[in-house]
Amino acid sequence: MLEIKNLYVKAGEKEILRGLNLSVGKGEVHVILGPNGSGKSTLMNVIMGHPKYEITSGEIFFEGEDLTALKTFERARRGIFLSFQTPEEIPGITVENMLRTAKQAISGEKIKILQFRKELRAIMSELKINPEYASRYMNVGFSGGEKKRNEILQLLVLNPKLALLDETDSGLDVDAVEIVSGGVAKFHNENNSCVIITHNAQILKHLPVNRAHIFLSGRIVKSGGAELVSEVSEHGYAPYEVES
């Protein structure tokens, strides 16, 4: 589904990704583990096409299509979703209005207001989001945890093929992580894939992890199964720095 080959990326003069390779198959769950500042978020943003980053060499393919030629919204319409580490506040645009606009843009079909509202309310209730938040402005005045839950709400409403989750569980209390984890598990199935950046194994509780990757200094230095997650939480990243 997602194929990244030997990717080099700069932001300004600074090289952030240095020869990154990653292959995610249909229905797979991948976990990326790595210290702060190693370039994990950059990777997510580059897949989504953030204009700040420049690809100096390498390739990104999604379902066989070269992503680098596509604009961000075209990538989203192909079925890629990014759950932001720090979701933007957008005054004046309600959650419901934005999500309906987004869903229409992705599906190319007009969506009936009332039917959409019903669907939205149902998902909000599963994520234990107060229904009033549908008519609040996007992330404005939301707590950190509310913003993250709102990202998962968007994931479930837009139902993409590939979810990129950038520390969606960070800053959340135990109950909130449980809700977010349940939401991601609901999204994941044999067709839908996830790439999850996390420092915390709890979000993975309900997910069958296929691959885990240790990410250091702009590249993946070790890949393995789910067991890597517990190795890292026990020993940290120091053992892998030698390998890199």
Partner: peptide
Amino acid sequence: EEAVFYLMARGISE
């Protein structure tokens, strides 16, 4: 520009 990117990441044209 970050808000524009956020909306585009949801499939909305620039």
